[in-house]
Design a protein around this nucleic acid. Structure first.
Lengths: 110, 110
DNA sequence: GGTCGATATGTCACATATGGCATAATTTAC
DNA sequence: GTAAATTATGCCATATGTGACATATCGACC
């Protein structure tokens, strides 16, 4: 489970710093990367729940299928801005986004 | 209070769309802008609580005083990525950021 | 096997965000 | 008052993110 997350990060271009060792991430860097990962996972979940294809979601945000694929893969060339816009396009509210960002078990329903 | 928010937005380069009328923002656009605004306000609060100058915070994130000023002003040329990095540099956790994003009264302490 | 819809990956020209700098405006301390 | 510190604003060269496209890979179905 944790091993799985590590592999996904490395495959997404996150050789943070020059040491490029996963364990050398500072707390800040780790939090930043995990936050992005949480958002991209939530994006995929929400898109699928809505029964949308990447192509359809792409059209909603004026982007392309390939970029949506990269969003969901947490590719390093994807901005937080685009991730958030993607989430909003699936109908997510600020509260939904906050819930996606917060570490597990730290929020409750409004 | 609401009027105040509107003015700050307009001064930050958020003439969204071409109609440029505040009331023409879609729900999504409004949520996006408000989310950014919430983060920039929280950034300023946290920086001041820590007794940091913009200059000092800038150094922590490898940026410049002028950019930090723009972050706190929610300038339209500032990315969410930079805002989040700034918050993390003040010691904010994912939970802190989530709390900043969520609309008032929808979270509780972990 | 093969077809088809969906997703993944690589590349590129162009748009936007970036740090840095100068300088103006504002606040704070004396 | 005014000097010093801090913050705001404008600008620019460059770095980074962007949509678009081609193409590869995957899965379901026959």
């Amino acid at each position: 489970m944790e091993e799985d997350k590590r592999r996904r990060l490395e495959e997404s271009g996150w050789k943070v710093g020059s040491a490029a060792d996963f364990l050398d991430l500072t707390e800040e860097e780790a939090a930043y990367v995990e936050l992005r990962l949480a958002l991209s996972e939530t994006l995929r979940e929400r898109r699928m729940e809505k029964g949308l294809t990447q192509e359809e979601l792409a059209r909603r945000i004026g982007s392309s299928q390939s970029r949506v694929a990269k969003m969901e893969a947490s590719d390093s060339t994807v901005s937080l801005d685009l991730l958030v816009k993607g989430l909003l396009a699936t109908g997510a509210t600020r509260g939904d986004i906050a819930a996606a960002i917060a570490p597990e078990g730290t929020t409750r329903a409004a």
